[in-house]
Amino acid sequence: MVGIVVVSHSERAAEGIAEVAAEMAGDTRIEPVGGDGKGGIGTVPDAIEEAIDAAAGGETDEGGRSDGDGVVVLVDLGSAVMNADVAVELSDAEAVIADAPVLEGAVNAAVAATDPSATVESVREQAEAARDIEKL
């Protein structure tokens, strides 16, 4: 199963976006993470790394493999993207960042992840397709 991480500068925004996406997500693991760790706005790579590991699920063996099928990370803006990038490099889990709007991307990713044959690539692709969503 592919896990999903939602990263925002605001912890509450991350939680809210994860909540919206979870409506469509079946039993997909969605981990929200955000804030500077002191109640303020920002992101922290270590916290994002923990969220990635949690979304990856299962026990990670010494070689860094887990029983999950990887993680797709949705991010909001600027330094959150850089911090997520650092976290992806530090984590042992297979994780990729989707170049997508964070909320629409998270919803698309959640739907895509319910497909039994979903892979990190297929979920990322669907998340990135959210860039083309027209609202009017």
């Binding site: 500077d36 760790g37 922290v44 790579p45 850089m82 911090n83």
Partner: peptide
């Protein structure tokens, strides 16, 4: 990375790691 907010955390700190 943990203490410097904004882009400077990952740029100065992440690169150092």
């Amino acid at each position: 990375m943990a203490e410097v907010g904004g882009a400077s955390g990952p740029l100065f700190g992440g690169s150092l790691v």
